[in-house]
Amino acid sequence: MRPKPKDSPHPKIFSVSAAAAASVTAAFALTKSGVFDFNRTEDSNLKVIQNNGSQHDLSIEINAIREENKVLESALEDVIAENSSLKGKVDETANTYADLSKELHSVQGQLVAERSRCTKLEAQIGELHKILESLPSIEEEVLLLRSQKTALERDMELGAAVQRQSSGGVWKWIAG
Rank of each mutant, 00 (worst) to 15 (best):
Q124K: 11
Q165S: 04
G88N: 08
G169D: 06
H56G: 13
D7E: 04
W173A: 09
P11Y: 08
V162K: 11
S59D: 11
R66Q: 14
Q163R: 01
Q55I: 05
R154S: 06
H56S: 15
I60Q: 07
S59I: 13
L121W: 05
W173S: 09
L72M: 12
E141D: 06
V162R: 07
E141G: 07
N63D: 12
L46A: 11
G109Y: 05
L132N: 15
V48L: 10
S84W: 13
Q108R: 07
I62V: 11
R2K: 11
K47F: 12
A21H: 01
A19H: 00
K47G: 04
I131F: 07
G88C: 04
N51E: 02
D57R: 08
G169L: 10
D78Q: 12
L144T: 03
S101Q: 11
S85H: 08
V90I: 01
E140L: 05
V35K: 04
G34A: 10
I62W: 02
T96P: 00
A18D: 03
E61L: 11
F28G: 03
D91T: 07
A98Q: 13
I13S: 11
D155M: 01
L100I: 05
V35M: 01
S137C: 10
L72Y: 00
S134G: 13
P5Q: 00
D43H: 14
W171K: 08
E153V: 11
T119M: 15
E92C: 00
D7T: 00
N83K: 10
D57G: 01
T150A: 14
K149H: 14
G176T: 02
N51L: 05
L144C: 02
I131V: 12
R115Q: 12
I13V: 13
V35L: 02
S106A: 12
R164F: 03
E68A: 10
L143D: 08
R164T: 08
E122V: 14
D43C: 10
S116G: 13
S74E: 14
E68F: 01
K130N: 07
H129T: 02
K172F: 05
A98K: 06
I65M: 08
A20E: 03
P5I: 04
R164H: 03
D99C: 01
P11K: 07
L143A: 10
S54T: 12
N39V: 02
S166P: 00
L111D: 06
A161W: 02
T119K: 15
G168T: 02
R146P: 03
Q148Y: 13
S134H: 14
I65L: 10
E139S: 10
K12Q: 15
K87T: 03
E139N: 12
D7L: 01
L144D: 00
R40G: 08
D99T: 00
Q110G: 05
L135S: 14
R40C: 11
G126W: 03
E82V: 15
K87A: 03
R115E: 09
A27R: 06
V142P: 00
K102M: 10
H105L: 14
